[in-house]
Design a protein around this nucleic acid. Sequence first.
DNA 1: ATCCGATAGTTGACCTGTCATCCATCCCTT
DNA 2: AAGGGATGGATGACAGGTCAACTATCGGAT
Lengths: 155, 155
Amino acid sequence: MNSMPQWLSQQEYAAWREFIRMEEKLVGRLSRLMQAESSLSGADYAVLVELTDAPEGRLRFMDLVKAVEWEKSRMSHQVRRMTKRGLVAREECVDDGRGAFVVITPTGREAIAEAAPRHVEAVRRLFVEALTPEELDSVAHVSRRILEHLEKVPD
Amino acid sequence: MNSMPQWLSQQEYAAWREFIRMEEKLVGRLSRLMQAESSLSGADYAVLVELTDAPEGRLRFMDLVKAVEWEKSRMSHQVRRMTKRGLVAREECVDDGRGAFVVITPTGREAIAEAAPRHVEAVRRLFVEALTPEELDSVAHVSRRILEHLEKVPD
DNA sequence: ATCCGATAGTTGACCTGTCATCCATCCCTT
DNA sequence: AAGGGATGGATGACAGGTCAACTATCGGAT
């Protein structure tokens, strides 16, 4: 791709390349750490955090989907696997015959209570500690800019 | 996680949260775009770029692994799949009985020649165009900082 | 009352990546 | 020359995600 200067400037290409290398390494390493230390994946963690924050640890399936911004099929698979492991349970919804609730179980609460400190610690070690406060702000700012842009731009 | 202010400051948490949302959306969208437009995934693309840049489009398996910084088992699977699709071929290595070469095929060259412009265009639309030149520099800088830090920090 | 589009959620096939393990060859030491 | 650790690479089982279809219910218009 170095041989295609007409498409991306040196600067643009460098930014992209560094960014993509960084995110692969950072995310990869973090998820392996989580897997190893807590047997809770990032996906498990995200779901359990949402449920923990919800009243009675219970959320409508679709609300859960919206909260973590996944596709519903992904969530459906995820919930099935987590149910099998006893981390969450499904409940029927009286109001809406199509609906379902997802509830965190005691096992699930235990799991996230144990995982959370390690997870936060990993984020601190790998990410937060790499950067100065100014750089942290800069990450937040740039991330928001990209997110905004993604919402405006069509596929 | 809002309920654990002692672990990550507001600022630190905000930066992490925005970053991770952004990278999920950006990477997800880019890879779906690539899949749809060119039937070449990001992984396929990375491998073909490396091979294209190599003399005779040929690289030792392990050199390829190092070039893209993957695990070797990932590369092994990837090469098998790409071989099946005719994008690359394996060749024996005379010098080293254990060794193998991976070579890009004419089909592979065609594929990347067709995919490259679309890929670059997608990177431009989703990423480059979201940011000012200063912000691009900032991304590159922060990414490097994190990468350096990752190398220093043990698991 | 019924029809119909929208919403809720599931499922199965398929692709990608990880981990652990395995085998063969290489090369260094004795 | 013979071991033995390191290196090169393949493989199989598995978890995770995407896509496309499918089912079932809801709710508003007729």
